[in-house]
């Protein structure tokens, strides 16, 4: 079988995510290709597993590393996601009912949540050096007092993400970090697409309120 184009959602460009979203659907041949890779792996071809990781590793890492302490923990989390997905999909391969991407997304967002709960801390600071531009807005502010206020505002808005209801946080993570369409989010979380949109809007509204509250305080 000829390899399908690798659709790895990255977080560097939201416009690129739109392209990824439109290229994928439940009827997409991607699912058939994933199923073929899984069968090949279960038949002894380890390169098929590597191909699966390269196809969907961007999605998984994109979701889990937001909550990871460092890149090593992010890789460990992503590894657990793939192993759990492997366990889940083995039973479905024979039936041809394979939705690797949806399973990976669901497992990743749940594991990421557990990572937050277990470590009781969110370590965006540890990953700050990996952020785009390698500089936060606060670091760009020369005035120390204004920088502290800005940093406090960032802290408050970031903390608002963790205070979101579970479903809202899941939808937001799958949309922003995973780059999934609302249709894919609905499939991953086994909810209606309209529900996914509503959860997203509620989450965005809460973040906006958190930003407004932080600005009022400062």
């Amino acid at each position: 079988m000829e390899a399908a184009p690798i659709h790895v959602a990255t977080s560097d460009d939201y416009a690129e995510r739109r392209t990824v979203r439109r290229s994928r659907s439940p009827e997409s041949p991607d699912n058939a290709y994933d199923a073929a890779l899984l069968r090949a792996f279960l038949g002894g071809d380890e390169t098929a597993f590597t191909a699966l990781v390269h196809r969907h590793g961007g999605l998984v890492l994109g979701i889990v590393r937001r909550y990871a302490r460092d890149s090593d923990q992010a890789r460990d989390l992503a590894q657990r996601v793939f192993l759990r997905a492997l366990q889940a999909t083995r039973r479905s391969v024979a039936r041809g009912d394979v939705h690797v991407r949806a399973w990976l997304a669901r497992i990743a967002v749940n594991l990421a949540k557990n990572a937050v709960r277990d470590s009781a801390r969110r370590t965006q600071a540890a990953l700050a050096h990996e952020r785009e531009g390698s500089s936060s807005k606060a670091a760009e502010v020369l005035d120390a007092e204004a920088g502290l206020l800005l940093a406090e505002r960032e802290r408050q808005v970031s903390a608002a993400v963790l205070r979101l209801p579970r479903r809202q946080r899941q939808v937001l993570a799958l949309r922003v970090d995973g780059g999934l369409s609302f249709r894919e989010i609905a499939q991953a979380l086994e909810i209606a697409e309209g529900n996914a949109r509503v959860q997203y809007h509620h989450a965005m509204r809460r973040l906006q309120d958190a930003l407004a509250a932080a600005e009022e305080e400062s």
């Binding site: 977080s11 560097d12 990781v53 973040l207």
Partner: peptide, 24 residues
């Protein structure tokens, strides 16, 4: 609000994916 709450992270590299595949 979104850019502050969930700042964009650097793109996942091929090296990271290869490392992940090997570890898994």
């Amino acid at each position: 609000a979104l850019s502050i709450a969930m700042p964009r992270l650097a793109p996942v590299t091929d090296a990271e994916l290869s490392s992940l595949a090997a570890a898994a």
